[in-house]
């Protein structure tokens, strides 16, 4: 195996484009090294992005935030501006692994690992985040939900990398929240994850919402029907029940070692309600 540590994005792109064999990007490494250890990956080349200074930055952009691909979960949690605007995205990223994993893991890596159970992805999807993809043919901007195409697979072309996740401007009376269910209190992969991002008007009516589910389908789901259940309501019990029903209806999970179909379908709705209530409170609505 060859280990390469470029110091610019251009250099990284040309290394990726020119590499032969199995070439993997190393951001935090908390998935890649586990795969290598478990004989699920045996790359010929690893390209480490952490020596690229630009990718280590959290930068204001168009009223929102550009989070570099090598920014760790811990660094996001320590960034007051980001936490204030996107508490759900940050809390979702901060749920990945242990304190130790937080010191390494990245949101972009979590996205490109393409696990349907990735914690930060539903939160990014609900937030309307986009990935900035850089490659031999230039730069393109892609909604994050279009990056994973199947478990372990992404829409990135050869030579492409995500250099940043861009979170949009957070409007007034708006916030987000992410909840996941795990058997223990820490250290597990999400059995179900749910993110809700919403905006309220002055009297507390929900004017916009995005709801996303993890671990209930081959890729993270954006659930428009769940958002519609909230929009235009004051998020009373009936609206929350409709939200839960929409999430349970959208969930198409499998039975596996982490949970059953029935469990996931039910809990998707439970978490959606709970996350919506938290997001509402954060947005300045009723507690």
């Amino acid at each position: 195996m060859q280990y390469l540590a470029p110091t610019t994005v251009d250099e990284a792109v040309s290394l990726l484009a020119g590499a032969s064999g199995d070439c993997r990007i190393l951001a935090g490494g908390t998935d890649l090294l586990v795969r290598m250890r478990s004989d699920m990956a045996d790359p010929d080349t690893v390209v480490d992005l952490k020596r690229i200074d630009a990718l280590k930055q959290i930068t204001p952009e168009d009223g929102g935030w550009r989070v570099g691909a090598a920014v760790s979960g811990a660094e996001m949690g320590e960034h007051e501006g980001l936490v204030a605007d996107w508490p759900g995205v940050v809390e979702a990223t901060n749920l990945i692994g242990s304190t130790q994993v937080q010191g390494r893991c990245t949101m972009a890596g979590n996205l490109c690992n393409a696990s349907p159970a990735a914690d930060s992805v539903p939160a990014m999807v609900a937030a309307g985040a986009v990935a900035r993809v850089v490659g031999p043919n230039g730069t393109r901007v892609v909604p994050v939900e279009e990056i994973p195409t199947a478990p372990g697979r992404t829409s990135l072309e050869k030579g492409e990398l995500i250099d940043a996740i861009i979170l949009p401007e957070r409007g007034v009376r708006s916030s987000d929240a992410y909840l996941r269910f795990i058997p223990r209190t820490e250290m597990d992969i999400a059995v179900v994850g749910c993110a809700v991002s919403l905006s309220l008007d002055e009297d507390g009516t929900c004017t916009a919402a995005r709801v996303s589910l993890g671990a209930v389908a081959p890729t993270v789901l954006l659930v428009p029907a769940a958002a519609e259940a909230l929009i235009g309501t004051k998020m009373n019990d009936a609206a929350l029940d409709a939200l839960a029903a929409a999430c349970s209806a959208a969930a198409k999970p499998i039975d596996d070692k982490r949970g059953t179909v029935d469990f996931r379908v039910h809990v998707a709705g439970v978490l959606a309600k709970r996350a919506a209530v938290i997001a509402r409170k954060r947005a300045g609505g009723a507690a």
């Binding site: 478990s38 058997p183 223990r184 209190t185 820490e186 250290m187 597990d188 992969i189 070692k257």
Partner: peptide, 16 residues
Amino acid sequence: LQNAGFLDYRIPVASD
């Protein structure tokens, strides 16, 4: 065996 690791063989952690 489906869970041959400490990720899915879930022994109690401190926060439990």
